[in-house]
């Protein structure tokens, strides 16, 4: 079955496995390490990571633009940001090596990944923006919910 050839290198060719089976175990090791890091961070919650890593920019229009640009660092706790990045790393290796996305044609990869990523980003942006707005109404608005 010639068409079942696998690409055996990960980390852009830094690690090259001898066989597909070996690559699977290598990816398992990687996923386990990432999960272990997540669990340890989740249990100990280092105090340094419990606040955002940047403070918001003050001033006019430029400051607003910069705040939007760096919003991930300004408004998200560093710990949560680390969790999200690690999750995306795990998702990448599950899709690329377990679901064999690495071995599919470039076009299939793009059709699946770009479509999903674009729509998901859109969905997340809309809903989180709206949630934050409602929170601000509860917090600063005339109507209070805490009796």
């Amino acid at each position: 079955m010639a068409e079942h050839s696998h690409k055996l290198e990960i980390f852009r060719g830094l690690i090259k496995f001898k066989s597909n089976t070996q690559k699977i175990w290598g990816v398992l090791l990687l996923l386990s390490i990432v999960t272990a890091i997540e669990v340890v961070l989740g249990i100990y919650k280092p105090a340094i990571l419990m606040t955002p890593s940047m403070s918001p920019f003050e001033g006019g229009f430029t400051a607003t633009l910069l705040n939007i640009l760096f919003s991930a660092f300004i408004y998200t706790k560093s710990l949560n940001l680390i969790f999200i990045v690690l999750t995306i790393i795990k998702a990448y290796y599950i899709t690329w090596d377990f679901m064999h996305m690495r071995d599919e044609t470039k076009s299939l990869r793009r059709v699946v990944v770009w479509t999903a990523v674009f729509l998901i980003c859109y969905l997340i942006f809309i809903l989180l923006q709206e949630g934050g707005y409602i929170e601000s109404i509860y917090d600063n608005g005339f109507i209070k919910r805490d009796f």
Partner: peptide, 13 residues
Amino acid sequence: SGFLAAYGFSRFK
């Protein structure tokens, strides 16, 4: 994603 984003919405709220 719809479910998780809705969860995020409520959590932000």
